[in-house]
Design a protein around this nucleic acid. Structure first.
Lengths: 124, 124
DNA sequence: ACGTTCGTACGATAGCCGCCGTACTACGAG
DNA sequence: CTCGTAGTACGGCGGCTATCGTACGAACGT
């Protein structure tokens, strides 16, 4: 388990069945901020941003139940923060880095950096 | 009315009676994001960031009542986003730009820029 | 076919939060 | 002192939402 399935993001000819997500013109800043204003979701974003370009299924180990997990991923997707698609029995996730960078330059980067900084500050 | 009281921020010898606010080490990213994840508060931040370094009282003209206004300002202050102090009969507000920049470099700037960009996109 | 793993749908519940109105306090002007 | 302006405190209400449990559905391995 836990094989780092570093699949190329969908867009190739694979039947990736990307789950419904807002277009770049549908993304609202307040929704993005609201999506980021939750510890659990912030943790997801951190995990998704941490490795080079890691896309994981729900093996991110959150302090909540499966259903709650699904809920949070959905909030992030519907806000336009992440992209999801099915891959066999599991589901892949990836930050919509480029889209967000185009809309709100520097926002995602500073949030991720702040998150890392805060985490470091908490570790003695 | 509406005199642009561009007062020097407190810190001078004036009896500024700065209202209680979190120290720089008390500020939590999730709280800041939560404070920013509201249209009204986002509007306040935009107004506070728009002019050179404008600090206004509650003459920002929000689509809510006075009490709700107070509530939003308090949320922003307690999250560490703004600083407040009494000035005669009214109250002054200012973004804690430097503190936030030190903690989360680029965050406030990108949010403000995103806000302006989104507002421009909405104007035909 | 069967079971296992991964994920979703659907209630249900409890807490938070935005909003309001009213009553109250603080400060300055006259 | 009295009045008006600026803001706060408090209580209440409706809605959103984070959380859970249970039941269900889709791929894959055997």
């Amino acid at each position: 388990m836990h094989q780092t399935t570093a699949e190329t993001a969908p867009g190739a000819a694979e039947a990736c069945t990307t789950l419904p997500e807002p277009g770049t013109d549908e993304i609202r800043l307040e929704c993005v901020l609201h999506a980021l204003a939750d510890p659990v979701r912030l943790r997801i974003v951190a995990e998704l941003a941490a490795p080079g370009a890691a896309l994981n299924c729900l093996a991110i180990d959150l302090p909540v139940t499966k259903s709650t997990s699904t809920h949070h991923f959905r909030v992030l997707r519907e806000a336009g923060v992440i992209r999801q698609w099915r891959k066999g029995t599991s589901k892949m996730n990836a930050l919509r880095r480029d889209d967000l960078a185009r809309l709100y330059p520097g926002l995602l980067e500073s949030v991720v950096a702040a998150l890392a900084a805060q985490r470091d500050a908490a570790r003695p």
